[in-house]
């Protein structure tokens, strides 16, 4: 692992080079991660609150065509989509976001390999940054991450002072990417960066570990039927805010959309397990007929099924779902409460 230093001015130049090179640059904005057109739009602040929405839509868009079709008398012609994976750089990803594509890759490459996702991820460079935020909804430390976690980042920034960042090159992809920008880097001071991350780990901004995910997994295995779920379900409104802002929720729906009688396309659209219609059968039967069962699914999928199948927790502890929930349902509190029942 290499370590260098970059100052803000050079970082700006580097960003300008990325944009001028015809690549896409994405950085946290007010509501969501936005595409940066001018470097003056970049606010790089380790203490900023996580955006309301994650950046998963840059690899797994909220709505995307997967195939076009055209009907001609008796024939149907199918036209493949040409997925153009453009080089995309995410600057300033929080550790609770940077890991998301690694987690998502598991499910998108399990039996069927999702080219749409893979093509885009292949062209991604994730520049993560140490986080100095943490509010009461954060719980990255309970799911095996932390504000200084480099997991998922190709390059990791550590703010050293107002003006300078330590640059850690984590992956080969990151190394290759940085090669052409060597002129903006100066020699690093690994001692200083290490001191900074160590200080971060013991600072008040480090979310407290509130549950043991293995205990939670075991509890979930034994308590499928538990009145605990009904109490949550009665308050939850069955929207999909929580799923749609989550960096690792990945359900989608396939629908055909016609443009005329002859032409149309097949769409892959985000879907969410909290919708009542999500599990509704054509017969009218709904196996998850009440909200309690749907909320149970949400927690089980994240903290049991995904762990059993892929060895990863389907949650990065970012706390987005709780911050945005219209009825203030706090997933951190619920998961910690499971084992107390």
């Amino acid at each position: 692992m290499e370590e260098k230093i970059i100052n803000r001015e050079n970082l700006n130049k580097l960003c300008r080079d990325i944009i001028d090179g015809g690549n896409i640059l994405i950085a946290p904005g007010k509501t969501e991660y936005t595409v940066i057109k001018d470097t003056s739009e970049i606010i790089l602040d380790a203490g900023s609150k996580p955006t309301k929405a994650s950046y998963k839509n840059y690899a797994f868009p909220k709505a995307e065509p997967v195939i076009y079709y055209k009907k001609d008398k008796n024939d149907i012609e199918l036209i493949d989509i040409d997925i153009k994976g453009k080089k995309t750089v995410i600057l300033g990803a929080k550790p609770c976001d940077s890991n998301s594509f690694d987690i998502l890759s598991k499910v998108f490459n399990w039996d069927y390999k999702d080219d749409f996702f893979n093509m885009r991820v292949k062209n991604f460079i994730v520049i993560g940054m140490m986080c100095e935020f943490a509010d009461k909804y954060c719980f990255c430390t309970s799911v095996g991450l932390s504000p200084v976690s480099e997991k998922g980042s190709d390059i990791f920034l550590i703010p050293l002072d107002e003006n300078n960042f330590a640059v850690r090159i984590i992956t080969d992809k990151g190394k290759e990417f940085m090669e052409s920008y060597g002129k903006y880097l100066t020699e690093g001071n690994p001692e200083k960066a290490k001191a900074k991350t160590e200080a971060g780990k013991s600072s008040a901004k480090m979310p407290e570990k509130v549950f043991n995910s293995e205990e939670v997994r075991k509890w979930l295995g034994k308590n499928f039927e538990h009145p605990f779920w009904d109490g949550i379900g009665d308050v939850c409104l069955s929207c999909a805010q929580c799923a749609f802002v989550c960096p690792v929720c990945h359900c989608f729906d396939i629908v055909d959309e016609d443009y005329s009688y002859e032409e149309g396309r097949r769409m892959k659209n985000w879907d969410g397990c909290q919708f009542g219609h999500f599990t509704l059968h054509a017969s009218g039967h709904n196996p998850r007929d009440i909200q309690g069962k749907r909320y149970r699914q949400r927690i089980n999928h994240k903290f049991k099924y995904y762990v059993d199948k892929f060895g990863e927790i389907l949650c990065t502890g970012c706390g987005r779902c709780s911050r945005g929930c219209p009825v203030s349902i706090d997933i951190k509190e619920i998961v910690s409460d499971t084992v107390k029942n």
Binding site: P65, Y68, K70, E77, I79, Y259, E263, R265
Partner: peptide, 16 residues
């Protein structure tokens, strides 16, 4: 509102 889609279909029409 749907230009990317119609562009593809129109392009396709020409191809066809």
């Amino acid at each position: 509102l749907n230009s990317e889609f119609t562009a593809v279909v129109n392009g396709l029409k020409q191809e066809v």
